[in-house]
Design a protein around this nucleic acid. Sequence first.
DNA 1: CATGAATGAGTATTCATTCAT
DNA 2: CATGAATGAATACTCATTCAT
Lengths: 198, 198, 198, 198
Amino acid sequence: MVLNMEKHKRQAILGKAREWIGANGFSEFTMSKLAKFCGIAKGTLYNYFDNKEDLMVKVVEDRVAEIHHEVEEILGGSQEPEGKLRSMIRQGLAFYRDNLDLLMLYANEVKIADCKFPSSATAHGRFLREHLEWFMNRFEQLLSDMGVKRERRLLAYFFHETMKNLMSFNMLSGRELDIDRDADLLYSFYFHGVEAFQ
Amino acid sequence: MVLNMEKHKRQAILGKAREWIGANGFSEFTMSKLAKFCGIAKGTLYNYFDNKEDLMVKVVEDRVAEIHHEVEEILGGSQEPEGKLRSMIRQGLAFYRDNLDLLMLYANEVKIADCKFPSSATAHGRFLREHLEWFMNRFEQLLSDMGVKRERRLLAYFFHETMKNLMSFNMLSGRELDIDRDADLLYSFYFHGVEAFQ
Amino acid sequence: MVLNMEKHKRQAILGKAREWIGANGFSEFTMSKLAKFCGIAKGTLYNYFDNKEDLMVKVVEDRVAEIHHEVEEILGGSQEPEGKLRSMIRQGLAFYRDNLDLLMLYANEVKIADCKFPSSATAHGRFLREHLEWFMNRFEQLLSDMGVKRERRLLAYFFHETMKNLMSFNMLSGRELDIDRDADLLYSFYFHGVEAFQ
Amino acid sequence: MVLNMEKHKRQAILGKAREWIGANGFSEFTMSKLAKFCGIAKGTLYNYFDNKEDLMVKVVEDRVAEIHHEVEEILGGSQEPEGKLRSMIRQGLAFYRDNLDLLMLYANEVKIADCKFPSSATAHGRFLREHLEWFMNRFEQLLSDMGVKRERRLLAYFFHETMKNLMSFNMLSGRELDIDRDADLLYSFYFHGVEAFQ
DNA sequence: CATGAATGAGTATTCATTCAT
DNA sequence: CATGAATGAATACTCATTCAT
């Protein structure tokens, strides 16, 4: 019961946190603001989360679990490889559309610096890198199925980043996301390169 | 002479700043830490730079000028379009190899958040975005020369990002940069897509 | 209740601030010193006041409201003009006796400089000047009732200042305030000038 | 020779300091700004003055000497007392017109607080208070000559302050100083009080 | 003497975290 | 469990003063 209630409240807080970050950006995020936004006391947050880092990990955690699940469904399904690739793209675009803050998190927190000096890495940054690792491992298999012979890991990474790049491009240039059009574009670019646009 | 000394010290501080940022990431960067890292007093920094923002812009400024110059040389040269593309890749890789901290700056400071919340944008972030704008404008011409009919702006952005992606990938996975090999890889991926690796 | 406690502490801090300023003057006043003087942490001050300016305005605000009220009562009453003038003097002296720090605030913060350089004016300085304005407007009426034909505004200002001058004189020369005696003195000087002392 | 040069430069710096303070107000005054305004190095200032306090005393010193001299001339002259009083007023108004910064200095630095806590007093504040003391002593004699029987010291103080009050009033209300008119006004007020304006 | 780079203590302010209620 | 007042270390920045050249 209590645990249940606890879980509920925890989830409610996380939802609010996402909402806030999505609306106001990441660097302005503070515990006070979150508490006020949730309509609870600052101290209460610390009953549910060890600290800000912990909360930030949890903010990401379940949505990353969600991706894991969706990716598993697509890659473990019975479509042709190309169909899977297209599905991956559509799912990725839809996901980032609904979780724009994660895009920012990725941009800001999956830091190269953390690789050189892991001690200074943030917990949520580490978490995101672990997910990236998992994703690349998983995606390499698809590339293998598609007959890709070399550099599968790099290409897996490119896939992950290129999708974010498209979202970033849209944001930076004020272009609207159109999943049908943009999924096609991405597929063409990723599979055939610039050549496809000649 | 004195001016020379001033310039020297200014450059020395900027060098140290780059070193620090390269090693520890951007968001942890403070004036106190830099002062200590330089072995000078906090106040001294303010004899050379108006404020933190100013210093951070200066950290980027001259090297961006350097890129501008090199890019102009390649794109304004007499090579075939494909030759130019290859040269751009080699130049870009070499540049990032020598200026690894700029990679982080880009990752951390060309923020999507700043497009949604421009008020919170930093001066050096704006500076980098302006450079990006310039680069894309310039690169679109090459794509046009290569006969690319559609989505040239997006593809220009992809070029810029893909190069950084390769560098990031190397860092994240501990892979060594090999300009010959990696330039070929990038050319293949960018021009022909994943297909080229089948 | 809680609000009550809050208000209490807020008032306690303001009281301490007045005490400190009364004892040490205004230009030396800092948030650190106040915090230490209150025996609380620096950050705590910011739980009660937005910033130093805000605190300094609040230091003055309620007591100025008090003067407003008392002045209205006297000037709006049914005494003869001369009676009103005498009452004003007694009230003013009593007020400054009980709020010596305000004397310093006036001396230091209703700055002539702020008129020449309004950009550098402080919020509490502006506040005090607005009160002065109000007072002069109000007092001009009394002078009119007394049959004063010319220079009423200047004379209103002289009234305000002369009262402060007496207080300052007492402080500077170690003379004790004696309201009966000093009210008479002021009345004589203000109404009849030096002549009255011949 | 050298001493002469030294004295010359010292005076030049003091002149510049007055000019700066008169133009920009007192609270913004810093050694760096003065050095730049003089076109010399910061360190040079310290060859001529022990510290900022010392410089600020010297800024006042000679002009106060000037007043001393003028006051002596008037009070020691052969005019009738009333003539002397009128001369004092005209001389005072002219002096403050030409040395507006001293008005600010008086307002800000002859602090009541310094009487209660002399340890925190500034050197130039002390200097100004000493001058005030001298002035009051000197002026009391005139009042005596005019047949003033009581409260001569207080009235001397009032004289000093009232003159400043008129200047302040002009500044605060944007009124222009007109020495003929304002000297008459002051004489009437000081000698006959408000009564004279009925 | 003149210089001006270097200093460091000091200023206002923020914010993650704790703890008595 | 919930609260929110209190904390204090940290941040960017200033400026009177010193001292090697």
